[in-house]
Design a protein around this nucleic acid. Sequence first.
DNA 1: CATGAATGAGCGTTCATTCAT
DNA 2: AATGAATGAACGCTCATTCAT
Lengths: 193, 193, 193, 193
Amino acid sequence: MAKRTGEKHHDIIDAAVKTFARTGYHRTRVADIAREAGVADGTVYIYFKNKEDILVSLFQDLMIRFVEDLYSELVQCQDANEKLKKIINYHLTTLAGKPDQAKVTQIELRQIDQAINEGISRPLKRYFELIEEVINEGIQQGLYRKDLDTKTARKVVFGGIDEVVTCWVMSNKQYDLTALSEPVFELLVRGLR
Amino acid sequence: MAKRTGEKHHDIIDAAVKTFARTGYHRTRVADIAREAGVADGTVYIYFKNKEDILVSLFQDLMIRFVEDLYSELVQCQDANEKLKKIINYHLTTLAGKPDQAKVTQIELRQIDQAINEGISRPLKRYFELIEEVINEGIQQGLYRKDLDTKTARKVVFGGIDEVVTCWVMSNKQYDLTALSEPVFELLVRGLR
Amino acid sequence: MAKRTGEKHHDIIDAAVKTFARTGYHRTRVADIAREAGVADGTVYIYFKNKEDILVSLFQDLMIRFVEDLYSELVQCQDANEKLKKIINYHLTTLAGKPDQAKVTQIELRQIDQAINEGISRPLKRYFELIEEVINEGIQQGLYRKDLDTKTARKVVFGGIDEVVTCWVMSNKQYDLTALSEPVFELLVRGLR
Amino acid sequence: MAKRTGEKHHDIIDAAVKTFARTGYHRTRVADIAREAGVADGTVYIYFKNKEDILVSLFQDLMIRFVEDLYSELVQCQDANEKLKKIINYHLTTLAGKPDQAKVTQIELRQIDQAINEGISRPLKRYFELIEEVINEGIQQGLYRKDLDTKTARKVVFGGIDEVVTCWVMSNKQYDLTALSEPVFELLVRGLR
DNA sequence: CATGAATGAGCGTTCATTCAT
DNA sequence: AATGAATGAACGCTCATTCAT
């Protein structure tokens, strides 16, 4: 009855996403996650350093896959505009399809002592770089203004998308997030031009 | 040496801003705030319902004043463009000048159970409305696209500004936030046109 | 608009009886009593040493008056039997007519550190003596057994009556306590014979 | 050196009896019980819902065993008189041999919000029923008056015994409680005849 | 690897009491 | 005498983490 290695690790991550989304990070007890995952409390500590590590790992897993997948989609795009459109669309579509993840990413994740968290900022930074690369590409391609401050532009782009998602999560997902892809793109691409 | 009424309330708010900014909301003990404010632990509970109420009240105070002051500046502006510029500038300048408040607003405040928090969302909503009004005005004035989705535009505008501030706070305020006012405005106003 | 001296003292005692009966001694805050009495918190401490002192004083007041009044009734009785009947009847009638007092006497009063409480035991002791005197008188009058252990008899007599009252209070006073006067008397007087 | 399951539960009950008897329920800190039991504070909460639950559980344990044991003794008795004698004797003997339990039962237990306490009244009710059954049996056997109000008789019987124990506890157990078995029986049985 | 009983540090909150006015 | 704002000691309870099995 051997279980595949890593199966429990995955069970715990899954359970954590569900539980954090339902109850919130601080209100979730490690014991709750363990029960949801069908393992003993102690088992959680075989796979994770501590409670915070679960949240961070969970985010890393999601983010790394997200960026990888997004990247492999971007290479198929012709120019920066198409890429920006893809980014926005992929970002919104992904979270629209995974409400629990969206909740955790937008709300619960921000309940950690940011200052310390390497673990969160590193994968996020990779996403930021991706956006910046696209912006730079757009400048090179003559699609966007030459005098654009890439870093600031990236912040506005990411901040804009992020806020749209946050509002959707806080509204209890009562409308179609994906439908906002187009208008958000229009707003941002014009900003860059 | 009688103290003015309300002075303690103010002392506690002040102490809380300082302490939350320094230590983070969850790591701050009510006793820490009390000591910093120079009052007894119990005194805190004369003025606030509980620890969370301190954070919420604090934000309400700041936000209500912020929106009021901003509003009185806006009425002096000629058109939507000028108003948008004022909003961005006022937002960045205000927080650039009050690093502790910025820290609390951008980071600590987001550590609360959003679901519950009427107290936070109401004053924020007023700010959102202000932004939306400006966007609508711009449409009316023919400055911005007619087909603009005001709500989505507002989210991108606010999200963009907010992310710029958050990045500045997380960078430990190592650069001049106010200087970003102009590029952020350019990005957003073009997006709206 | 001068108030008679002692008026507030009385107001507080009254408020305490009501509040203790409604909420229970431990759950009652001194501030509750003060509000009910229409005085400031601090005023309570002008008239009473502390919270416990209110309960004790209250009981002393009641008990001393109870014993005095009972005594003056007893002198009019012919023999021990009549006196015993009077004691039982008076005890039950008094408490039946003052449900709040009954609640406090039977339930709340017993929540105090008995060991220490002089204040409670002294007035109670006087009541015990009264009962013992009647029993002794009954023995002298040949109404009760000569070999009766007066102290033990007193305990059984008082305990019997007391339990009847307690049961009535705990039943939320759903039946006529006074009606039990006769059967209780029958049980106790036969026990003494 | 594995401990038997349930051993800690028992340790805590034991520690609680000792500590409540020595210090009184309200003055006892949960930490005191834990220390006395040789367990951590948190361990107490694995076995008991809260502090009050310790007191209630403790009483239930004692009372249920008391009633069971008493019951098995009663079935060996010939008639109601013998049974009544057994009840009184068993009641006094049991408590005389366990002064800590007596203290807790007679004094500390009465410091709880009666209103709520199902937990206390249920096992007590079983004892009351036992007494009532004996009284009824006595009536059937022609030993006691036919016109006896069983419920009232039970209250007087229980109240009488209870008061005798309370007085003994409050006197710091300076005399032999068991010796009162005979006179109390005489008083009560005559009352029933 | 897995378990889950046990741990004990940690803290928010209450409220009886005081005292300057 | 009266006030009521302020005090601060006191403690029940939680829960992340450990470790013997």
